[in-house]
């Protein structure tokens, strides 16, 4: 029961965040929304594991958290430099 409430709250939050991702207006709003959507997905997976009585789902959540972070930073880097290569990045700005 309580897991169901948590799941519903997470899904509602995800919908609100998706609205922001669709509205924009800047591309950074969209990236922020998608990053947040990713962390919500981690919570969703964790709670879903408990709801189904299979806490092994947490491993997926852990991996998802890492991939989400790397994905966000990668998109930002690509947007800033137009390239993922070391050369372009190391010219003047040392990090993202």
């Amino acid at each position: 029961m309580m897991f169901l409430v948590a799941i519903i709250a997470i899904v509602v939050t995800m919908l609100l965040i998706l609205v922001r991702a669709l509205l924009g207006p800047t591309v950074y709003d969209r990236i922020l929304a998608i990053n947040l959507f990713g962390t919500k997905t981690v919570l969703f997976v964790a709670v879903l594991g408990f709801l189904n009585g299979r806490p092994e789902f947490l491993d997926l959540g852990l991996i998802y958290a890492l991939i989400n972070f790397i994905g966000t930073v990668t998109v930002l880097k690509f947007m800033q430099y137009g390239d993922l290569g070391w050369e372009a990045a190391s010219k003047e700005k040392p990090d993202v």
């Binding site: 800047t26 950074y28 990236i31 922020l32 990053n35 962390t39 981690v42 964790a46 806490p55 947490l58 491993d59 959540g61 852990l62 958290a65 890492l66 989400n68 972070f69 966000t72 930073v73 930002l76 947007m79 800033q80 993202v96």
Partner: peptide
């Protein structure tokens, strides 16, 4: 495992937010 998920999120989420703010 839950503690690890929490620690990872607590370390990565401000980093991602900072990168985003700075890029913007």
């Amino acid at each position: 495992k839950l503690v690890f998920v929490m620690l990872f999120l607590l370390i990565t989420s401000p980093t991602a937010t900072h990168a985003l703010a700075r890029a913007a």
